[in-house]
Design a protein around this nucleic acid. Structure first.
Length: 260
DNA sequence: ATGGCTTGAGTGTCAAGA
């Protein structure tokens, strides 16, 4: 099973990139964040024509998450279980026996702001959700745009970013909590090039200069981590005209009996 | 450089992202 996560920053704008990418990359599951549309504007037909089943949890203008899968999507869940939230940031489903949780975690704006407090509350609720889900599904992936750079090596200029949004200690502590719950960071299961990132600011030629952050992640339960053979960032789509500011991250899993 | 782009909303020019 190949599973990928990609913050597309508006699916309506990025649909051609997503369709081209799916045609070139035979992934079994693709998790999308920032679709920025309600169901009415969501391109279900185009994605189904490309061979994917689709579930979406969307809203107007902001946020919005979706899971695409070649196999049936079962036991779909929308939103966090015990956190009242008008923002559509989470969707989960079971695919070929693997529980897939797709999340667009809050940005937080600025350390100490109201949005930062919301981010920390949201992450605490996700921690509870993850703990419960791991009890039920031994094969689990939590993936998406975490809006957390877990370590200094995930930041192009750690000194400049120290303590700031996406890098603050409380945010990183939540990321470590997800790991402590029994997950592994798929990307760090393997040797990786230095300065590997998944997001680059649109401004100031940040992509060309590789001034990025690694904030898009796939966390795998222990049993899934044991089956993971590769995890890479695909910078290709970031080079296209009108790109998303995020690149897709892909993990390849060797599952014992795959019925995709 | 507390924003150098980009998006959605909607027709002015914001809010929000990271």
């Amino acid at each position: 099973m190949k599973i990928a996560t990609w913050n597309v920053n508006s699916l309506r704008v990025r649909l051609p990139h997503v369709l081209d990418w799916l045609a070139a990359n035979a992934v079994d599951v693709l998790c999308l964040q920032e679709t920025k549309t309600e169901d009415a504007g969501f391109p279900f037909a185009d994605l189904q024509a490309a061979g994917y089943n689709v579930v979406h949890n969307g809203q107007k203008t902001y946020n919005g998450v979706a899971i695409l899968a070649r196999a049936p999507l079962l036991e779909t869940q929308r939103d966090l279980t015990d956190f009242a939230d008008e923002q559509k940031r989470l969707i989960a489903a079971t695919v070929s026996g693997v529980r897939v949780i797709c999340a667009y975690m809050p940005n937080g704006s600025e350390v100490g702001s109201d949005k930062y407090a919301y981010k920390l509350r949201w992450l605490a609720a996700l921690q509870r959700e993850l703990d419960a889900a791991l009890q039920r599904w031994p094969l689990l992936v939590l993936c998406g745009d975490f809006n957390i750079a877990p370590e200094d090596r995930d930041v192009h200029d750690p000194l400049a970013w120290r303590g700031r949004i996406l890098c603050s200690d409380p945010e990183r502590e939540f990321f470590r909590g997800f790991i402590a719950a029994g997950c592994r960071d798929a990307f760090r299961l393997f040797e990786q090039p230095a300065d590997s990132f998944s997001w680059w600011d649109y401004r100031n030629a940040a992509f060309r200069r590789n001034l990025g952050l690694r904030i898009d992640h796939l966390l795998l339960s222990a049993d899934l981590a044991a089956a993971c053979r590769e995890c890479v960032v695909d910078k290709g789509p970031r080079r296209l005209q009108r790109p998303s500011d995020h690149a897709p991250v892909i993990a390849r899993l060797d599952l014992p009996q795959e019925d995709a």
